[in-house]
Structure formats: structure tokens, C-alpha cells
Write a protein that binds this DNA or RNA. Structure first.
Lengths: 345, 345
DNA sequence: CTGAAAGCGCTTACAG
DNA sequence: CTGAAAGCGCTTACAG
């Protein structure tokens, strides 16, 4: 026998109703802010509840209402810092409406496994709705699975069009364009780009921002300055090696790595090859991870409002659960360029 | 009205009982592996459940049993990577017994706020038990709060004695001693130490390991080589500045920073001051964070079995919830030294 | 604006 | 080894 159950002297809705001299239904109305309660009755109920230190029993509420008041956050390979920020944002919004958060990292599974696990989760978790983190939020198989089950969900993604379900993302094309424009303003015209993982919508967004900035400043786009990557540190090292191997006249004087991990790879390669930053090579990244401030020179990058994105996504989900129709809704939040020493700030 | 509720064609225990031609109590026994069911009855029930695709309704189970089957993970200022690993470990064990995990980061609150929030959580979350992450697991006010409420909990901490509740930690004194011994084996005798945050039990453990290694090798402990820190990057920078400012003959040839963040600070300071690593200064840290492999030279450090610690802690909690008495139990898992280029590997 | 009744789908405590 | 009854603490659907 569990100790807590014995100890717990739970106040029930019935006791509150008796003390307040109303029906339990009226107490229920007050507790759920349903309206249709006279202010005076409301006050009586509220003070009765308070004096008895009443807390509604969630299990009973869940059973009777056939809603779990649980939201499930599903994610796979995003970086720890990123996901911790997402968790914060989701929790902030959940707390406001007394939802519980369930987390489901699928980081070490293949898609086939994720599908299976997700199917289990959908069936068993009783979650009322789901929030999908990137890049899993762009996985067609998973979107179809959730849609097939009629499970409400919201995506955190840069590719809003992959589903009719609401989607929240970041204006990263705009931010990338701004970042590259700053490089141009500092006199750079041969600017290398290391692309992100093509599975992430953000990768093409950031490339688009790069192209836009160059075009707007009438600088020709040279394909030899655009190299591939998958957002990993090692891709930054390899990308830098490739770009810096170009003949001096075609070699970039600045490199925009599509995320900070790769930018740090560029910096490591530059350091190891005796290329001075920012004098001989300006470097910038994207994400503003913690370590962007810990390297020297500190890294110029873009700070994303991850927490705000997550909070917004949760808000959309909860509103959907409350019956609002948010079909096709897509929101993007602005991101801000942070200039530091790695580009000469 | 919520779409899922409409759609859901839930199979109940009653339907299974009818199909299997037994009472619902018998179905309940089978589903909960209670024993006292004849094998043949069991088979009949199981196949009935399967053919109806029956899944027990958790809300009903929770309400009837007055247990929530939820475990709440509470943590504050630990690093993201660390907490993500902890979450993984806890989830692994939770999944095995169909517990749900609730997370409660208290990172941005003061202790007074944490207390209040925790009180809310204990009262409202209905969690059956709690897992406390470091350094919050050493906070007396919080331990007393939980004990006062009779809430079962397990601590992830290096200071087992602060409570009678079970505690899981790492053999970091041993690992630190091993690490310093390796430095000694490479010929170092003037080894600096940058201490960790005194609020974390790990800080004194690692200091103890340092002292033990020196003592075992008959190297005198010189207090001027031991400087304070709080596990922050900047403390590494400051510590390196202080240690490297010593006159050449007393200056350390190696620095053991009590965590990787500080070790990276040391490396940054060394880089900025033209001190070559590892030739002029060997550097090592503790934790084996992702970036320990991303800097150059790569950082020698200690890898902690964080996931195993979390899994073990959860196991102890669940066993407690099942009625086992684990008063005063303390477990420590071994950690392993990882030698890399920063100490000349 | 308020309430009496029924029921959500399980487990507990007991009996046999 | 098995079961009938009561009840967990709420909400739903309806009536007034």
C-alpha cells in the first residue's frame, strides 16, 4: 500500500458543495470558470473551496471529461540546448491552463521505429494533442500517421506547407539575409556559405537569405562558394577546408555557416591552419548557442526566439483543443542578428 | 467538443470481460499481472483483450487506485546536455513500468520561489514520487518540504547523507584521482586545480580526488595551486589567469578544471595569452560535454554515466512506490577518464 | 442561474 | 482461483 494515498486527506467537490450549500455541479462550474454562476454564489463557493484547501482531482476530471489534459512533446535529433528551450516554452503555456507535459524524445530511433513508438503513444498516452519538434515535424510518414488518427497537433518547423495543421517557425530567411548584409556592409563580397542539413527546412531558408542579400547588393552568386553540410561540427571543418583551398583571388573573406556548430568547426579549422579571425576570415553562424560566447573571438550569429516559438505552438494547440479551427495557420517569429568579434565587431 | 473523444471507440474492461466470459475483476487481475489467475483463464482474457485491441484507461485506473502513475523530475540549474541525458535515463525506466514523466525545471527561480512552486506541484501534480536533480537535490529547504509532505523521492546527488531518502551519484572522487594520476604519470607535479561550485557536492568530491592522487604520489599539496570557481566558463578564464600569473618556478604545468566549461575557459585564456596546449600547459576537465571534442586540442576529461544514474534513481523510486523500504540506500556508479590531446594523448 | 441523476472505467475490500 | 458490490471524484446531458 502506498503511503501517500493513506496520508492524503483529500477534500472533494462534495465537501465544498456542502459547505457552500450548493450542488456539486455549481462548484464544478465555478472551478472551471464556466460562467452562468451568479457572482454571489461564486464568491461563496470560492471561499468554501479556499477554506477547505480544495484542489480538483485531475484523475476524476480526466475520466469524466474523457480528456487527459496532457500534451505530448515529440522530438528527435535537435540539439539539447534547443530542446530544453522548447520544453521551457511549452511548459510556460501548459502551466497557464493546467495542462501536463509529456516528453517523448525519439532521438535514437529510425523512422520505422519512431512510427511504431508514436503509434503506441497516440493510442496509450491519452494525450489530447501533440507538439512536434524539428526536424521530425517535417517527416511525412509521421504527419500522415497523426492525421490518420485524427490526433490534433502543431508543428515547430520552417516548412508550413507540409500539413494543414498549424505551424510555428522563425523568420530565418530574413535573419540570414540581414546577417549576410552586415558582412557586405563590412566590405566583404566573396562570402562562403556552408549549407545546413537538407532534411531541415531551415537549411533552405538560410540559403535563401544568403542569396537574397547578395542579390539585393548586386553581388553575383558564385556556386563554388556554396558548400554542403548537415549542421554537424565536422561539416564546418570540411567546409572551411574546401573553401579556403580556393585560389587566393576566389577564396572567401567571410564564411556564413548555417549553424553555430559548423561555424565553430570553421573556427577550429582556421585556428589549426593559422588563418586569423576576423582579420583574414570573418565567420558567422546561426542559433546563438551557449558556446558561441565561449570561443575566442566570440561568434557572430543569430538568436532565435525558441521559447517564444514553443509557447506560441502550445497556445495554438490548446486553442485547437478548445474547439477553435486553426486549419492552415502559420506563424513566424522574428530572429535577431548578434554581432560579435568573429566578424570584427 | 473535442474531436478525439468523439472518434475514440474505446474498448473497456467490461467488453473484454464479456467476451472472455469472466468478471471484470479477473480481467483487471490479468492486466495488472496480479497472479492468482489460472493459466487457462489468463490466456482467454489475454486473447480477448488482444482481439478487441483493449488498452486500460489510465484515468480510470488512477482514480480508482488513487495513484497517478506519474513521476515528477525536478531540477534547476544543471546544464542542458546533462538534463537531457537525465531525462533519457528516467524515461527508459518509466516506460518499462508505464509511468508517465512530468518535468519541472526550476532554473530561473530563487529558492523561495522553488519552495512555493514545489509545494504547488506536490499538492496538485498528483505525482506518486519525485526525482531531484543536482544541485537542487542538496537543498535542505526542499528536502524538508518533501519529507514534510511524506512524498517519496530519490536524489541524484554526490552528498548521500543529506537525507534518508535513496541517493544515486557517481564515483567522481575516484575518477578525479585517476585523472590527476594520469597527469602525474606524464611528468607533471605542479598541477593547478580550479574548484567547482561549492553548492554542488561534486565540487568537494573532485577536490578530494585531486588531493588523494597527489598524496598517493607523495606530491605536496600547495594551496596556491588551488583556486575557486563555480563551474562557469568565466571562472576557468579567471582561474587560468590567476594560476598562470604565478612566478615561473611555481606556475603549474597542468590545470585540472573541475568541469569542462571551466576547462574551456582555461583553454581560451591560454590561447589568448599565447600559452601552447599541451606543450606549455596540460588542461583537463570533467563531464565530457559535447564541446570537449570540438575544441582543438580536444579536451581530456571524465565521462559520467548520467543516463545510468538517472535510470537507477528511477528504479529506486519505483521500487519504493511498490512498497520496498530503501531507507538510506546510496549507490554510486563509476566514471571513466577520457584522455585526449589537451594533456598530450 | 441552478441542480439531480447517471456514468466515465477502473480498483478496493471483501466474500467465497 | 474467482466474482459481486461499492465507490474513486469528477463531468455530461438534461431539466427547470
Amino acid at each position: 500500500m502506498n503511503q501517500r494515498a493513506q496520508r492524503r486527506k483529500t477534500t472533494t467537490i462534495k465537501q465544498v458543495a456542502e459547505l457552500a450549500n450548493v450542488s456539486i455541479k455549481t462548484v464544478s462550474r465555478v472551478m472551471n470558470d464556466e460562467g452562468n454562476v451568479s457572482p454571489s454564489t461564486r464568491d461563496v463557493v470560492l471561499s468554501a473551496a479556499q477554506s477547505l484547501n480544495y484542489r480538483p482531482n485531475m484523475a476524476a476530471r480526466r475520466l469524466a471529461s474523457r480528456r487527459s489534459f496532457m500534451i505530448c512533446l515529440i522530438y528527435d535529433s535537435a540539439a539539447s540546448d534547443y530542446m530544453v528551450e522548447v520544453q521551457f516554452g511549452v511548459l510556460e503555456r501548459c502551466d497557464a491552463d493546467h495542462y501536463n507535459l509529456l516528453i517523448r524524445p525519439c532521438g535514437e530511433m529510425r523512422t520505422s521505429q519512431i512510427r511504431q513508438t508514436l503509434e503506441q503513444i497516440i493510442l496509450q498516452s491519452n494525450a489530447d494533442g501533440f507538439i512536434l519538434g524539428p526536424p521530425l515535424a517535417d517527416n511525412r510518414a509521421i504527419l500522415e500517421l497523426l492525421e490518420g488518427h485524427g490526433a490534433p497537433f502543431v508543428r515547430i518547423s520552417q516548412s508550413p506547407k507540409r500539413s494543414r495543421q498549424p505551424c510555428v517557425g522563425v523568420e530565418d530567411t530574413q535573419a540570414a539575409s540581414e546577417l549576410v548584409s552586415r558582412l557586405i556592409a563590412r566590405g566583404h563580397s566573396r562570402i562562403g556559405l556552408i549549407r545546413g542539413n537538407p532534411k531541415h527546412g531551415s537549411a533552405s531558408d538560410r540559403l535563401a537569405g544568403y542569396r537574397r542579400a547578395l542579390t539585393e547588393h548586386d553581388i553575383p552568386i558564385r556556386e563554388e562558394l556554396i558548400v554542403s553540410g548537415r549542421y554537424e561540427f565536422d561539416d564546418g571543418v570540411a567546409g572551411a577546408r574546401q573553401l579556403l583551398a580556393l585560389p587566393a583571388k576566389r577564396r572567401p573573406t567571410a564564411i556564413f555557416a548555417s549553424n553555430d556548430h559548423m561555424a565553430l568547426g570553421v573556427m577550429q579549422y582556421a585556428g589549426a591552419s593559422g588563418v586569423r579571425i576576423p582579420d583574414e576570415l570573418a565567420v558567422c553562424g546561426f542559433d546563438d548557442i551557449e558556446f558561441a560566447r565561449f570561443v575566442w573571438p566570440r561568434l557572430t550569429t543569430v538568436n532565435q526566439p525558441i521559447r517564444g516559438v514553443a509557447r506560441t505552438a502550445t497556445d495554438l494547440l490548446i486553442r485547437q483543443l478548445d474547439g477553435e479551427n486553426l486549419d492552415g495557420v502559420s506563424i513566424r517569429l522574428p530572429a535577431s542578428v548578434i554581432e560579435r568579434e568573429s566578424t570584427g565587431a
